[in-house]
């Protein structure tokens, strides 16, 4: 299991807690908010904090603030690189191959209660990913496919729009090329990627581009909460 203590060797629960909050902020709320957090410490806060420390501190409040901000940035960059993809990814990945019949893909996804599967080529590299979104796209022509659009279409035409799935294979509807990450990608970059590309899972590949795991959005959240 992932242990935060391993990366931040301190027994101080408060320190760990604040580290956790920082990671959480980073993942959930993105940089703008974190930056606000960093900027929200004012010279007055520093001044009050300095008053709490007995003895004469040979540093001005404005220098202390500069120091605080530099340290904050350093901590953030450490955090960004501390946890790599292979520490949070799921290793047992349910996959399909390019030639798998779409019916079987649907079965696999339904039986395993997953919302997406990587599609592999014969050599084990990732050809693409199939997610619920790909089915939705297939089921209506709208540029912004959604479940409700499908329902609407279904009600209006009174026909089964999934009928033509029977003759298709995974290759036909997968999103490709796949957006992959390496085992060494820091998870905060992964979170960033998911946001930018608007995807919910991303395959993790080794040096030879072979699939070794997968990270879903929920894995990221779980990592942070399991601590």
């Amino acid at each position: 299991m992932f242990r935060l203590e391993k990366y931040f060797p301190t027994s101080d629960k408060n320190v760990l807690a604040s580290v956790l909050i920082l990671i959480f902020l980073e993942v959930k709320m993105k940089f703008s908010l974190l930056n606000e957090c960093r900027q929200s410490i004012t010279e007055d806060d520093i001044y009050e904090a300095m008053k709490k420390i007995p003895g004469y501190l040979d540093i001005t409040p404005s220098d202390s603030m500069e120091l605080y901000r530099a340290a904050f940035d350093h901590a953030m960059s450490t955090l960004k690189n501390a946890i790599k993809a292979d520490q949070v990814m799921t290793r047992k990945v349910i996959t399909v191959s390019e030639d798998t019949a779409l019916m079987e893909v649907v079965h696999k996804m339904a039986d395993n209660e997953i919302s997406g599967v990587p599609v592999l080529k014969e050599d084990g590299t990732v050809a693409g990913v199939i997610s619920e979104k790909d089915f939705l796209k297939r089921m209506n022509d709208d540029k912004k496919p959604s479940f409700m659009r499908v329902v609407l279409q279904c009600l209006e035409t009174k026909g089964c729009i999934a009928a033509d799935f029977k003759n298709l294979t995974a290759r036909d509807i997968m999103s490709s090329p796949a957006i992959n990450i390496s085992v060494q990608t820091p998870i905060l970059e992964v979170a960033d990627l998911m946001d930018k590309k608007n995807i919910n899972r991303v395959p993790v590949v080794d040096n030879q581009s072979r699939l070794v795991g997968i990270i879903a959005r929920s894995d990221l959240v779980q990592t942070l909460c399991s601590f």
Partner: peptide
Amino acid sequence: GGGKRGPSRVGYSE
């Protein structure tokens, strides 16, 4: 000058 002020005065025991 950049900052607002210097450090606060120390306590009596100091």
